[in-house]
Design a protein around this nucleic acid. Structure first.
Lengths: 123, 123
DNA sequence: CTGTATCCATGATGATACTG
DNA sequence: CAGTATCATCATGGATACAG
């Protein structure tokens, strides 16, 4: 006979909220966009400058997502030529500590690899 | 003339470590697997039970990734039939507070949607 | 400058069947 | 029970061209 299935102690836990946030930060760029906005508000072109390898298409899509969910605001500047400025909302700012915590773990992960003299496992 | 590009205050920040961790938690399941292992060690089948919709193929792949990066250990139990038990390493456990922080933001996000009487934006 | 529209490549998943 | 093999599908992202 096999072992009995042990009931998980994973209660009606934050599994759902977690998934919602990760759905937002998912992908290669969303978290970098949030991080770029952690300081002053920034314009579309400035964000492209911060993240040299992001395509306009993807940056546009991410910003729209974050805006839709109330994490980022968009303000049109009536300059010549016209430009747009993005900023984190208070709600969006609450992501920052969490992102920081993750980054902290990331540093330890990398340090571990180096300590072991191992190569970072490829993608 | 357009506005000058403002230099980003996004310093040589944890952008890299962050990406490394997110690469691990990326996808629909990795973070749930980590969360399921937050309590007692669990067997393959128990994990499938915790995450009813995950396929064996994907669960296997995620566990292998986490094991490769030193976040999870795998122990074979010489039972009949044989089974395997997975657990978080100390390094893996360091993900927990970060995940908690993210979940906290997630709860506020969802609460916000409800307060506004809005539907959660579809994926 | 600020996006949007197309087309294409890649990666992550689900379903199902099968092995030890 | 604990996986692995194969096939099909969908989401994400890059490149490029084009529009307001």
């Amino acid at each position: 006979m096999g072992l009995p299935i042990r009931k998980s102690k994973v209660e009606p836990r934050p599994t759902c909220p977690l998934s919602e946030v990760l759905r937002l930060l998912r992908g290669a760029w969303a978290h970098n966009v949030v991080w770029s906005l952690s300081g002053e508000p920034r314009r579309f072109g400035e964000l492209r400058h911060d993240l040299p390898k992001i395509s306009a298409r993807v940056l546009s899509a991410r910003l729209r997502e974050l805006e839709t969910r109330g994490l980022v605001t968009r303000r049109v500047l009536h300059t010549s030529p016209p430009s747009a400025e993005y900023a984190l909302t208070p709600l969006g700012r609450e992501l920052l500590p969490a992102i920081d915590a993750l980054a902290s773990v990331g540093r330890k992960l990398i340090a571990e690899w180096e300590t072991l003299g191992q190569q970072r496992p490829a993608g």
